[in-house]
Amino acid sequence: MNSLDAKSRLYGLMSFLVIVIFLAGVYGLLTDVLRLPNAVLFPGWQKIIPAFGLSFKQLLEGLASSMGLLAPAVAASVLTGVAAGVIIGLRPKIEAVLLPFIRAMNPLPSTMLIPYAIAVMPTFWFSSWIIIYIGVLWPVLMNTLHGIAMLEPRWIDNARCLNLTGRHLVFKVVLPGAMPQIFAGINAGLIRSFLLLTVAEMIGSKAGLGYFVQYYADFAKYDRVIVGMIWLSFIVVLIMTLFDLLKKRILYWTKKR
């Protein structure tokens, strides 16, 4: 990473913070100072900041609960999605049969499974888990298949000339070559997972960040609702930033030449 790159990234971060502070300032001006909008629906910072202090323990517990659901579900989707993608993707005849099915499943919102999942699965945790799992699985699987289909023919020629087969072929050539596309799939899956997580938590849960927001909305405590939303946004941005760092790490070889 050269200095210009670091400089322009710092510049980007600074402008982002300036914009956030500016918007927060406008909000504060409208609510705390001018008291223009409805004070219940739009509480000012004077109410939100103390609410944050009061809810801090709950927010941490909610985070732990949410992550305890999200992390295993996403991890399971990624592992099975990539593994299935490799198994199917290396067998064009099977892929030809399954691809239309996978294509059809991908855009279906797995939220429609929520009532059924709650009825079928033993606990709420499992029903939420399966909804996130299914929702994340398709984009990961689709993109893994896509990545394998788009492997450069020259890499395959090269691997064949070196007599690479089986495990070696998968781990030395197929996975690294398809990795940019696999990461695009995980990225899409992650974004979908936050949506599914909060929806699942708002509908049937007694814990988690989605539940926190829903709970206080039911009591019209919108200062807490806003605290929950800001906290959740912060967590999502943090996870995506960490994901981007991981991506850069693993896709080191795709940096511009």
Partner: peptide
């Protein structure tokens, strides 16, 4: 019958895996 290591191949600018 098939590729073999008795025949080393050098292609035009793509004999190497870019991630290694």
């Amino acid at each position: 019958c098939g590729p073999g290591l008795d025949r080393a191949v050098v292609f035009q600018d793509y004999s190497l895996f870019p991630w290694m």
